[in-house]
Structure formats: C-alpha cells, structure tokens
Simulated scan of single mutants.
Amino acid sequence: MSSASHTNDSPDNGDSTNEFKMRTPSLKFMYHLECEMSQENHVVGAQFGTSNARVIMPIVGGTVKGPRISAIIQTMSGADWGLAIGGTGLMRLDARYTLKTDDGHYIYVRSKGIFKPGPGVDINPAARTRMTQDEVEWFTRLQFEASGPYDWMNSVFAIGVLAMDESKILIDAYELTNFM
C-alpha cells in the first residue's frame, strides 16, 4: 500500500488485527441513461403454484450521455426479464439491450439488479409514472461487451442507480474504482 493518507479508510480497519488497511472504493460517473419502456408488459405468471411471476418489459429506446460516451439504445433491442417476488414488492431485474454510439459502434449491456420499496413505502410499479430514490432501493450491476474506442468498458465494474420519471427509466451509471 502506498504511504499516501486516504480519507476513505474502511470502517472495519479499527477491528482488524492485520496491519494492512483497506479503504472504501470510489464511484466515478460514467453516464446518464434515459430509457423508454413499452407500454405493454408480458406477464408469464407464477410457475408451479409459486407466488413469483416473470414480467417481461420490452425496451423501446433511449439515450446515453456521459463524458466518454454518447449513444442511443437501439429500438426494440432488448427487455428486462424481471422476476416479481410474490407478496414482497421486490423484483429481481435482468435486462439486456444494445447501445449504438454516435460514432457507429455497438455495445451490448447486461444489467442485473434489484427493485424494492423503501421502509414503510407501498408501491405498485405498474400504476406509477414516477419513482424517486426516496421511495425505492433500485440498483443494478452493469456489464458491457464493447470494442474499438469503447474497449475500456469491458473491464469496468459498474453499478447503476435508478429512478423513474414520466414512465422513463433513469440510470446514473458509476464505475467502482480504487483510483480517482
């Protein structure tokens, strides 16, 4: 470890018997995404009498803007194959879609995450056009397959913080890093 002092020391450092000190990683902004979803979802329903139901939510399009990327979500290039966990308000997310950058490159995005109402909040997502970070825990792990000038995205560990406004899914994507 370098001799530089870090202000983001891990909270566990005080309890560790090891001299090696960990630090909390940083988040580096990658992009803001605005995603348009289809008005029609496909509900597979509960399998084998369980209360869990697969809900397929087609992605119609959208935009991505950030310091190193500007792109659109290819029309009808994917969906979120969510799993609604019956009676909990919890949904496991599993989205896949394709970006086309302004300079003509394609990027495959896979997003696995979780949606759950905040403490004391009762939300029916199907009946809402707006959901804020004050109401829900809505996070995703983003993985990329890219080439050319976007090769750097292949080695990024990214997380997305989600919200919804006017029925558009909003994602601010951040790279998790030890370096800033």
Rank of each mutant, 00 (worst) to 15 (best):
F157Y: 05
G118D: 12
N41E: 14
Y31N: 11
S3Y: 06
A71K: 00
D12T: 09
K28C: 09
I69Y: 03
W138I: 00
M57G: 01
T24Q: 09
S147T: 11
D94W: 03
P117M: 12
R141F: 09
Y97M: 02
M1V: 08
D12N: 11
E135F: 01
F115E: 02
A126M: 15
V109C: 15
D103G: 04
P149V: 00
R23M: 05
I107W: 03
D15G: 11
A71I: 05
W152M: 03
D122W: 10
Y97C: 04
G49K: 13
A79Q: 07
S16R: 12
V64C: 15
D122R: 13
A79S: 14
T24P: 06
V44Q: 12
V121R: 15
H32V: 02
S5W: 07
E135G: 01
F20H: 11
S10L: 02
K100F: 05
Y150I: 00
A163T: 06
S38N: 15
L93F: 03
V109H: 05
V109N: 07
S155Y: 03
D172P: 09
R130K: 15
F139R: 12
G148H: 00
M153S: 01
P58V: 01
D103N: 13
G62V: 01
S167I: 04
S147R: 05
R128G: 00
G87P: 07
E135V: 00
N41K: 13
R92S: 01
W81S: 04
T7S: 12
R54D: 08
M131D: 07
G14F: 09
F20Y: 10
S5C: 09
A4R: 12
G89N: 03
M76I: 04
M22E: 12
A173I: 04
A46V: 09
K112R: 13
N18G: 03
S111Q: 09
I56Y: 00
Q143A: 06
S70D: 09
T24S: 10
M30H: 04
K21R: 14
H105G: 07
P119W: 11
S3E: 11
D15V: 08
R110N: 13
R68D: 13
Y150R: 01
Y31G: 05
A95Y: 01
G160S: 03
S70H: 01
G82M: 15
D134N: 14
I114P: 00
S26H: 12
N154K: 02
V136A: 12
M164S: 06
F144M: 00
S70P: 01
K112W: 10
I171K: 02
V109E: 08
A84Q: 11
M131P: 00
G61F: 06
D151L: 06
F48C: 07
Y31C: 15
L83Q: 03
Y106V: 08
R130T: 14
D122V: 14
E166A: 14
Q47Y: 10
A95C: 06
N18T: 07
M30A: 04
S77V: 08
S2G: 06
L93G: 00
D12Y: 10
I73M: 02
G14M: 07
S26L: 15
G104M: 05
M76W: 12
M164R: 14
G118L: 14
A84T: 07
